[in-house]
């Protein structure tokens, strides 16, 4: 769906995007992840034909974003950063205007506006003035605008910024519901969000793509195997003894828990799943166990690890 080859964008004296290449397949939800100023918005602006790249090419659904800009624009729904909307228009009126502008016929635009208003939960505010709507509703109007002409590709620049948790949840649900039918490219600097919504993530830093994989694979590459945590009621010494004898365990750490339970953190050798092994050990010794979980390495760590500037690593 998207194919970007060596995209570079230079502003006067500053390189925003440096020779990035990536591709997105049809039906994927891809997150563009990175700190502020990493070049996410610039990349999206190039893909949405708002401005051209300094060098490199990008194709959306086989059309070049510079030479066939009109064909590309018809195929994408783009919501820019901060979701700009005309404050003086009414919700329905605005969506109808946008639908007509994007080339839908009079009847078709009426149908589509009704559908997207339903889809985005805007039906009850359809006659309200956009400037008087809450931020959550405004965001939904922006989403409805991006969806109204049934684009093949939807590009959303920070769709959940500035919303309260309820609204964020609603927006996420909406985006997830688009999977399969549409291809979605979302930018965000919030990790759990990308983890929840995206099937694949591109991590950007300083105008470059540093990693591109599924959230799970990214975790694996960074952490090797997954640690597990077990809470077992056992005498400290015999527990230590038992764990030392397990060949699958590379290292472990035991802390005092409450109520006589000990909290062990175990790191596996060769990335094996330690849960069954630890359970079996506890069962054989007749120890009580009340927790056995895989320690999810948070994306936060991956993110920090990958995007760490070199000078910080040296310290």
């Amino acid at each position: 769906m998207i194919e970007a080859i060596n995209l570079t964008k230079r502003y006067a004296g500053r390189t925003a995007v440096q020779s990035i290449s990536f591709s997105v397949a049809r039906g994927e939800i891809v997150g563009l992840l990175g700190p502020n100023g990493a070049g996410k918005s610039t990349t999206m602006r190039i893909l949405s034909c708002f401005m051209p790249a300094t060098s490199g090419t990008a194709r959306v659904a086989g059309c070049d974003v510079f030479r066939q800009a009109d064909d590309v624009r018809r195929r994408i729904g783009y919501m820019p950063e901060n979701n700009p909307l005309p404050g003086e228009m009414r919700v329905r009126e605005y969506l109808k205007f946008r639908a007509r502008l994007k080339g839908l016929g009079w009847r078709r635009s009426r149908e589509r506006v009704a559908t997207v208003m339903e889809q985005c939960g805007l039906t009850q505010v359809n006659r309200r003035i956009i400037g008087q709507l809450s931020k959550g509703y405004r965001q939904r109007v922006g989403l409805a605008d991006a969806l109204v002409h049934e684009p093949e590709l939807i590009i959303l620049d920070e769709p959940t910024i500035g919303l309260d948790p309820h609204q964020i949840r609603a927006v996420r649900q909406l985006i997830r519901s688009l999977a399969g039918k549409h291809t979605v490219l979302i930018s965000t600097h919030i990790l759990p969000e990308a983890e929840m919504m995206c099937s694949r993530m591109l991590i950007m830093y300083d105008g470059r793509i540093l990693a591109s994989d599924t959230p799970e694979n990214l975790q694996r590459t960074v952490t090797g195997g997954r640690q597990i945590v077990a809470e077992i009621a056992a005498p400290l010494l015999s527990l230590r003894e038992a764990l030392l004898q397990l060949p699958e365990v590379e290292s472990f750490d035991i802390m005092d828990g409450d109520d006589g339970f000990l909290r062990c953190t175990l790191t596996p050798r060769n990335g094996t799943d330690l849960r069954a092994v630890v359970y079996e050990a506890a069962r054989q010794n007749g120890w009580l166990m009340r927790e056995l979980t895989r320690n999810r390495h948070s994306l936060e760590d991956i993110y920090v690890q990958i995007t760490q500037p070199p000078d910080e690593e040296e310290e």
């Binding site: 034909c49 624009r73 994408i76 783009y78 005309p86 946008r98 502008l101």
Partner: peptide, 14 residues
């Protein structure tokens, strides 16, 4: 200033 220029210019209009 309001940013709607971006939504306008990314719509298929000349």
């Amino acid at each position: 200033a309001s940013g709607t220029y971006e939504t306008l210019m990314t719509a298929p209009v000349g």
